[in-house]
Design a binder for these strands. Structure first.
Lengths: 235, 235
DNA sequence: GGTTTGGCCTGATATGGGTCAAGGCGCTTG
DNA sequence: CAAGCGCCTTGACCCATATCAGGCCAAACC
């Protein structure tokens, strides 16, 4: 299934839709767009290694990447799974430090690279932009903290349940009693690593949840039978 | 042991020494200082609860606080231990979200509260400041990521070893063969929680390390006999 | 002085989740 | 079509760490 059809993107529009840049003037967005460069990656290809020096940040146009820590024993720890229209790598730009994780395409992927000089310039000239950038980073920090809480205070099943509920389209608060369809964004292996689990454990948890009639699993298609009940699931 | 002697601090100097503000003009530091307010806390007193709305950030003048997630079963998860001259709570200022953790004094403590309006104003008027702020937040994010790596990829003993090495004065790189004295900043209970361990496990690990002649423990005083060997410690 | 309290250690036991090994299912490829 | 390869599942077993329970010591308090 090679993505042969010539894929055209409206880069300024894509950038303008980033949470970070929504309140930015179109003039500045265009400035960024002219400086950005596309990069195509085959599945399994590395965008950068842990230890490389960053020169900007990235936005995914189509495809998917994982950010992960490598580990001597082959077992890596996936920190995040990045999909279309999501950006990543903003924070490292501001430190003189190498990437703490590596980024690998987990499907054929097109990313946009925005060099950091453009960003630095914007910060210098547009205070609103700096403020937005700060808000964006804070949000990242917040969700990482959330992860720490999850890893340390919740059991494996609770982590899986939490993940499924997060994937629901209508966001968190909506805990209707009706069925909800969720499509897993990638393989169960990668999701398992993201949740600090082995694939075996994830498989068994899905099995248990299905046996308890809370969900049903058909490949990457998960049907949540009752979100409210699922949320209350314990052990 | 009540801190009765009248404690005077040079607030502008304290602020100027924050990593975030070092490159700031003294004029602006003074502006912040005039707006800041001291707050005294007894040991065990809460500075803020998880869920409170933030109005600024804090700098510890003397004493110590812990930042932690509460948990239904009484067992909390300590995210960070904050000592004198360290600041915290910068990130939440930029989001319209409540504190994701609570802050509790773990000894008699004096903190400085800097209202966020001052910061916002500085960002608007001084681009260099915004840049420093971004660098500061990025650093936080980086060290949180480090934590995630540690929790997911390292065994309990490795976490303890890593912690001890971090506490060494001469920073990380220096792995001399000589003895190094480390003083634990707080009780072993709190450190255990910070490392995602039970106090029992931490105690046993100290015991094992001491038996292997790598360290010796006298209360909060830990002597590292050979940093290089300790670093290589496995299992 | 006795008693309480908090911090810490130690031993016995339990268990969540990892590890190892085997096999199935569904792609892709020749 | 068969072969091969990823991805996933399943079962048996094991181990690192938690849990539970008891006890020690020093400081604080009556």
């Amino acid at each position: 299934m090679t993505q042969t059809n010539d894929f055209r993107v409206d880069i300024p529009e894509l950038l303008a839709r980033q949470p970070l840049f929504q309140q930015m003037s179109m003039e500045h967005v265009n400035l960024m767009a002219t400086q950005a460069r596309e990069k195509r990656l085959g599945r399994g290809e590395m965008l950068f290694q842990k230890g490389d020096m960053p020169r900007g940040f990235y936005v995914v146009i189509f495809g998917q990447l994982k950010l992960a820590f490598p580990s001597s024993a082959g077992n890596e720890k996936v920190v995040d799974i990045i999909g279309p229209k999501q950006s990543f790598g903003e924070a490292v730009m501001f430190m003189d430090k190498p990437y703490p994780v590596f980024a690998e395409a987990i499907s054929d992927t097109l990313v946009l690279h925005v060099p950091r000089d453009v960003i630095f310039e914007l910060i210098r000239t547009e205070p609103t932009f700096a403020h937005l950038m700060l808000a964006g980073l804070s949000l990242r920090l917040h969700s990482l903290l959330q992860d720490v809480e999850t890893y340390s205070l919740r059991s494996s099943a609770q982590r899986v349940v939490g993940y499924l509920l997060q994937q629901c389209p209508g966001d968190v608060g909506a805990l209707g009693e009706g069925e909800i369809q969720v499509t897993l964004p990638t393989t169960k292996q990668i999701i398992a690593s993201r949740l600090n689990l082995t694939p075996e454990t994830l498989s068994r948890i899905f099995h248990d949840l299905a046996e308890a009639k809370l969900i049903s699993v058909q490949g990457k298609q998960i049907t949540i039978n009752n979100a409210r009940q699922l949320r209350e699931y314990d052990i």
